[in-house]
Design a protein around this nucleic acid. Structure first.
Length: 417
DNA sequence: CTCGGCATCCTAT
DNA sequence: CTAACGATAGGATGCCGAG
């Protein structure tokens, strides 16, 4: 069965979506000047999340610190991120795709795979269909996309990355040699910075060289699994299906880069409480309990460390997550070296309907008096948040970590933000 | 020896 | 000079102790 896969990718998604909103408000189009979306402008630690094409001409790249970008281009306009807007824009964009495609996989907020296999009678000309889709999105929603077409997801995705913006590209098997193999290895999906560095030591610079390399050599450079996947990808081989169903989550995590370095236990515990509140509220909202908790810290030199543990029993209680994370931090942070980042992750999730291994619901945390009290408090806070928004409820630490950290250490109020 | 837990590394948006 | 100034997620890998 020959497949036909599209990959649709919004060009400079966050910036495009912000530009559309500004244009609707009668303002000028920031896509036409050097501009970018850059993290939290109040924190000095933001990075470039999306940039305009004029900004790119200054050598500004996604992921670089805002300060550095401003050095390259002092007149760069930096706009704050607004994830509510992005979620709404993403929905509108994907709902147009669903009008054409029987199976849509939401790969990220601004990317989707469409399985168009077997639609030849309905759409005899796939290229024409791709143009129709991208033009409709552009004309109705005001932003451009790239469409990549191939026989599998990998080729569709690589093709959508070719030339931007507002383009349709194909990467069919007979085009692998001319379109894929000349590209630098780092352009290949899942060949990141570290793999590029290792491949370079063996003189492998292009995707074509990777696709012709000795599998034994690749295994020694990249490891067993990664090397096999890289070799297949380099030759345009990929069997993975387009999945319409979202994956079942494996964990929830929240982490913050702190406005000020944390050196004392009281500061650290305030941050943990806030993070624990976030993570546990997400567990309750999504109907999961965590069997494991992990705490991560990052020092001033960017070195990261983490400690994790398994719980006696699964939990979604903010108190249990908090107390556990305090214990993990104390194991991790004996030296009290200054921290620039802290995070908590809930791991080894159990779904609502998924009973715990063993038979220990006898004197579990929900059954003790203290456990019931904590459960009640969490429920009450959750319902207040649902009614009045996440900013409404504060309890030493609030829903949003950044707010709380700012309040504690800078004495700023919400209105100043 | 194998398995599972843990810490870390790697990659993606 | 290097990496690297972010949040979140998932998978791979190497080590270690238990059975």
């Amino acid at each position: 069965m020959e497949r036909l896969i599209f990959h649709v990718d919004v060009n400079s998604a966050f910036l495009s979506w912000e530009a559309v909103r500004l244009v609707k408000n009668g303002e000028s189009d920031v896509r036409l000047i050097p501009s970018c979306i850059g993290g939290d402008p109040n924190s000095r630690r933001g990075i470039v999340l999306a940039k305009s094409i004029p900004a790119k001409k200054y050598g500004i790249v996604t992921g670089e610190p805002i300060g550095l970008a401003l050095q390259k281009c002092p007149e760069l306009m930096v706009l704050p991120a607004d994830f509510k807007l992005y979620a709404a824009s993403s929905r509108a964009f994907k709902s147009i795709l669903r009008e054409y495609a029987p199976v849509v996989e939401e790969f990220s907020i601004d990317e989707a795979f469409l399985d168009m296999s077997g639609t030849a009678l309905l759409y005899p000309d796939p290229l024409a269909l791709a143009h129709t889709m991208k033009n409709r999105i552009r004309d109705e929603l005001g932003f451009t996309v790239n469409v990549g077409i191939g026989r599998n997801k990998l080729c569709a995705k690589m093709a959508s990355d070719f030339e931007k913006p507002d383009k349709v590209h194909t990467l069919f098997p007979e085009e692998i040699e001319s379109k894929l193999w000349p590209l630098p290895v780092g352009d290949l999906l899942f060949v990141g910075r570290s793999s590029v560095r290792r491949l370079e030591t063996a003189g492998i610079r292009t995707i074509g060289e990777l696709g012709h390399a000795d599998p034994k050599l690749l295994a020694s450079l990249l490891g067993e699994k990664m090397s096999r996947q890289a070799y297949r990808y380099a030759n345009g081989i990929d069997d993975s299906p387009v999945r319409a169903e979202p994956e079942i989550p494996k964990g929830f995590s929240n982490e913050v880069t702190l406005e000020e370095d944390v050196v004392r236990d009281e500061q650290a515990h305030a941050v943990l409480l806030s993070l624990a509140d976030c993570v546990s509220a997400r567990l309750r909202d999504e109907g999961y309990k965590a069997q494991g908790i992990s705490v991560t810290v990052r020092y001033l030199n960017f070195q990261k460390r983490s400690h994790q543990c398994m719980l006696e029993r699964a939990t979604h209680s903010s108190r249990t997550v908090y107390e556990t994370s305090k214990k993990l931090l104390s194991e991790l942070w004996g030296d009290h070296r200054p921290l620039r980042l802290m995070g908590i992750a809930a791991t080894n999730l159990l779904g609502k309907d998924e009973p715990e291994e063993g038979q220990l619901s006898l004197f579990g945390e929900e059954d003790s008096a203290a456990g019931r009290k904590n459960e009640k408090l969490d429920q009450a806070l959750d319902s207040l948040r649902r009614r009045f928004g996440s900013g409404a409820v504060k309890r030493g630490a609030s829903m949003t970590v950044r707010e709380e950290v700012a309040r504690k250490y800078k004495g700023k109020s919400d209105s100043e933000r």
